[in-house]
């Protein structure tokens, strides 16, 4: 399992309206969710992890190597990202070219890249859109296309910034299956999301950001079991807990299934 370490990481945008400050943090789980309020600094940390923004101080290392010491093509094989707004990363004339372009950054064999592009577009359900202009796709299709571009390169670490945004339920299931497969095959998946039900059901590890700092790192059960902490960082528990609480039960539940398991005497 690849490891990402942050040491005394500091960053501020030019207007200094926002400061990120992480003393020490280790990402080492196969599937981690990053949660936190709007403006907490979640997307900013992803931009620092991929070198899109440069920290003012401190250090990011991947498996002990300083991020900036990787050659660009090496770095792309280590760590890949899909952005929150797909329009920030799509610029080629066709869907297929978009995927092939990502691949060309790490591999110069055009035939191999073309074959790989077909494969990943099929995987995300965009095979029949290969020749369309990404600009003509719907928002959900553009989100899926960004996932295809990073799957094609197959880095060791995947960063997904709100991957489920605007997807419908069948697509959400498909993406969840892709994440499970990645995490089961030795990759590290780190996902930013606002969907607490999904975090509770699918993730082993959750990291909470607030005001540019990491305020919690642990299991969903520990996070959602700590109401005082949730309140402090401005988060809500999964819906099932809110409902149980209304019925006078303040135990920790991660899904309706979990509620049934704990409340039906066999």
């Amino acid at each position: 399992m690849p490891q990402i370490e942050l040491h005394n990481l500091q960053f501020a945008y030019p207007e200094k309206s926002f400061n990120l400050n992480v003393e020490q943090h280790l990402f080492s789980d196969s599937m981690t969710a990053i949660v936190g309020q709007n403006g907490a600094g979640k997307s900013t940390i992803f931009k620092l992890l991929t070198g899109l923004l440069k920290q003012d101080a401190g250090r990011i290392t991947i498996d002990g190597v300083v991020l900036n010491d990787f050659k660009p093509s090496e770095r792309l094989k280590k760590i890949g990202i899909t952005f929150q707004n797909p329009d920030d990363q799509l610029f080629n004339a066709t869907v297929k070219r978009e995927v092939e372009w990502s691949l060309s950054q790490v591999n110069s064999d055009k035939d191999q890249n073309a074959a790989r592009a077909v494969e990943v577009l099929k995987k995300v359900g965009l095979a029949d859109k290969s020749d369309e202009n990404p600009y003509d796709l719907s928002l959900s299709e553009r989100k899926l296309l960004t996932i295809a571009t990073v799957l094609a390169v197959d880095p060791e670490i995947y960063l997904f910034d709100e991957p489920m945004m605007s997807l419908d339920w069948p697509s959400k299931r498909m993406v969840t299956d892709i994440f499970r497969e990645l995490s089961a095959t030795g990759h590290q998946v780190i996902t930013i999301t606002h969907d607490m039900d999904w975090v509770a059901e699918e993730f082993h590890s959750v990291t909470v950001m607030e005001h540019g700092e990491i305020k919690f790192s642990g299991t969903p059960r520990d996070l959602f079991g700590d109401r005082e902490l949730l309140q402090r960082v401005g988060l809500l528990p999964p819906k099932i807990m809110e409902l149980a609480e209304m019925l006078g039960d303040s135990k920790t539940y991660l899904s309706p299934q979990d509620y049934q398991n704990q409340n039906i005497v066999q």
Binding site: G36, Q37, N38, Q84, E162, M165, S166, H194, M196, G234, L235, L236
Partner: peptide, 13 residues
């Protein structure tokens, strides 16, 4: 049209 897709849980509520 899907106005809360990127909003945090408290803001959405």
């Amino acid at each position: 049209d899907d106005p809360t897709s990127e909003m945090d849980p408290v803001g959405r509520q």
